[in-house]
Design a binder for these strands. Structure first.
Lengths: 244, 244
DNA sequence: CAGCGAACATGATCGAGGTTAATGCGCTTG
DNA sequence: CAAGCGCATTAACCTCGATCATGTTCGCTG
């Protein structure tokens, strides 16, 4: 079975067989987790670095009033957090959203890799930069896009990310997120999100059914979202451009 | 004259005199820039890495409809962008907001530092992690805080960041941002931001006057914002906690 | 010191999205 | 199969912040 994490890094940095071997053994400790398992809690002292091999997770903060804001979705191949002994205390939570396979890389091993393997450091750095880029694009969405555009944009992003790791099938991909989870990510109420999803379905643009996202009209979806995949800094071909 | 950038890194990673020397010479190329000078434009191929030594800058994206979303403010000591030859193309713009002093570190030199100096790599990494943390907190603000809270939170953040680099004086600090700029950062209209600022002043909480932010009642401001400075991961004492 | 443009200020109105509440529907579990 | 729970769905109403319109103030320059 291939390792989604290593595959993803290889796609963007020239790793030698040697280095792939090092990473593989660093990922030795793999756990199966149920949905709803917390990998990281606010206030934790960071220790091992977690990597998603399979399944979905999210990063979130709670507010005093009980509200929740999701700040990122982690898909197979993504780091949960590359804190590497630098921060003293986690400032947010990370929880699985589906049954997942997660590798944990001990801090010491991470540091050793970084200090001895420039190619691996570069791969990690690339991953950090892409994560930042996604965070920035979320800020743009929340600040300046209205609800339909926001929903459409997130769906484009998630579809492309799934596509880039080989987890799309034609015009659809897995979408295990409940409307509650999506609304916590989009800064909308579940009620309003539901309305938006209904409208998008009725307009023949996209729909979420049976745990799958179905792009009925990808080009139109991208147009509504104002989607430009440059911020994902991937080298994969662009689905929306092809079909638009 | 001390170098704000190096001071900041030293506060968070154990740099030897040797390493400080290397960084100092890497910052050799320093330019004075006027307000409104673009350091980075969307579509640019990234080359040197810019560092703010003095003055304010911001990172932003434009939307098709002409709207602008600011995604970060850079203060003295901050990296503008640690892209390091990893990304092929910038996905956003960076522009100075005031007269500034900016150092540019050639890519080759950045890479050399990272490949030979683990302490410097760690300092850079820390800086990246803090930047990410700030991005996440902005997402929380935009998604779940209403306008007054949002304004209050940004003011807390900027005050603390200025405080942490020694640029606050008692209950005030420099605040060269126009209401238009602030509203582009907060995802509000200038009109509404103006009302919020009026309310905060009338409530005796804070005011912006003559290019300065004045905290009339820091504890109250922090309470309105729901501000917790843990996300800034600084070791400085906390102004709001002291006075609250 | 007149004239001008940028930034600040404020009133009136509108609408996207929040709030509340009720209903349905599919799953699990006893 | 009944009970119960989490999630999806829809309707009625309300509010926060956007929009539109119109000054005003400040700082600069001729």
């Amino acid at each position: 079975m291939s390792n989604a994490f290593i595959e993803r890094l290889r796609g963007h940095a020239p790793l030698s067989d040697d280095e792939v071997g090092l990473l593989t053994s660093a990922c030795g400790n793999i756990r199966e987790l149920k949905a709803g398992h917390h990998l990281i809690r606010e206030g934790d002292k960071p220790d091992p670095v977690f990597v998603m091999l399979d399944g979905w997770a999210c990063r979130y903060k709670m507010l005093p009033d009980g509200g929740r804001q999701i700040m990122a979705f982690m898909l197979p191949g993504d780091f949960c957090d590359v804190h590497i002994a630098v921060l003293r205390e986690m400032d947010h939570n990370v929880v699985t959203l589906t049954k997942s396979r997660v590798a944990s890389l001990p801090q010491a091993q991470m540091e050793a890799l970084i200090q001895t393997r420039p190619a691996i450091t570069q791969a990690f750095w690339w991953s950090q930069l892409v994560d930042q880029s996604v965070l920035r694009s979320w800020i743009v969405s929340m600040g300046r896009r209205k609800s339909v555009e926001r929903v459409a944009h997130l769906m484009c992003e998630l579809y492309i990310r799934m596509h880039n790791i080989g987890l799309s099938t034609g015009d659809r991909c897995e979408m295990p997120l409940t409307q509650l989870v999506l609304s916590d990510a989009l800064g909308l109420t579940p009620v309003h999100l539901n309305r938006v999803l209904r409208d998008l379905k009725q307009a023949g643009v996209m729909e979420i059914k049976g745990g799958s996202l179905i792009l009925l009209d990808p080009a139109k979806l991208a147009r509504i979202a104002g989607f430009d995949d440059n911020y994902l800094h991937s080298r994969a071909d662009v689905f929306f451009a092809r079909t638009g």
